[in-house]
Design a protein around this nucleic acid. Structure first.
Lengths: 148, 148
DNA sequence: CCTTGCCTTGAAGTGCACATTAAGGATTAA
DNA sequence: TTAATCCTTAATGTGCACTTCAAGGCAAGG
């Protein structure tokens, strides 16, 4: 498949695919007799992998470091494993931060509802969330800024 | 408190605080008689809120839009609610993507354990070294390329 | 033969989110 | 009084992750 088809299949622009290849995030792509990229499913999967990790917040630089290590010879195994663990911890922290922000917004959203109609159920939920997260005061109605 | 103390308290640079104020992510900050910013706890909480939302992936632009609506005295409740819901959905999707990447990495990590024998001691040392270089991101693999 | 539409490379441009620099003002310590 | 250390604004610079442009090649359709 040519680069345009690969782009359509992955949702990654042709230019970005070229960029990923240049930056060694995906392996060197085979060429046709006239020099055009001929992209197979292995490359597609690598592109999707890169996309997934990028969406998870991994930088090009770190992605390349890991992929290079991984593609290299054996025996880097311990270091790879260490990298994996470190990155995993960072991602879990990021997920937790994200969850905390989601909780915050959910709290606000639920709070909006009681301008209109709030069920007893929702109220108990709000109190439960609020008790857990004391750090969430900033944008809620109690910070003295939004006096409505 | 002056901007440097606020910076130290929040972990946000002085330049970034000025930038946030300029971009209306935080309210106009009071000045002393000579024109220096005098930052109180309400501002600190707003900075922390911005930090949290930024870490969760919200752009300056979206943050400003939301905050401006929120700060408006008008009862934009329905519109605010819609924005909140949209942002929330995006964040939940991002969290799920992140979780999926975490699962991916966990799978790989478990796979590594089959192959090698590394003491936890060595791992911790490696992790410590790596953590100095890598602050935030993550990596993985596992798509049929690295057949080991 | 010419236009369309795909491709190539390398270089330059873009947008975001700040960081840094320049030029100057006020306060404090020696 | 001079140096240090904070502050101010406005302007410019930076790094990342691409995107766009420029200049050209190849193949098919009309």
């Amino acid at each position: 498949m040519n680069i345009k088809e690969a782009s359509e299949k992955t949702g990654v622009s042709s230019a970005a695919i070229r960029y990923y290849e240049k930056e060694l995030l995906i392996p060197a792509i085979d060429r046709t007799d006239v020099g055009n990229r001929d992209i197979d499913d292995r490359i597609i999967r690598r592109i999707q992998f890169v996309t997934q990790m990028r969406a998870a917040g991994m930088s090009i630089e770190n992605l390349r470091r890991y992929i290079q290590l991984f593609d290299a010879q054996e025996d880097n195994a311990k270091e790879q494993k260490a990298i994996l663990k470190t990155q995993l911890a960072a991602m879990e922290e990021k997920r937790d931060d994200l969850q905390s922000a989601i909780d915050h917004l959910n709290y606000k959203l639920n709070h909006f509802y009681d301008h209109m109609e709030t069920t007893e159920e929702e109220l108990r939920e709000l109190e439960r969330q609020h008790a857990e997260k004391v750090t969430d005061d900033a944008m809620s109605e109690g910070d003295g800024y939004n006096n409505r």
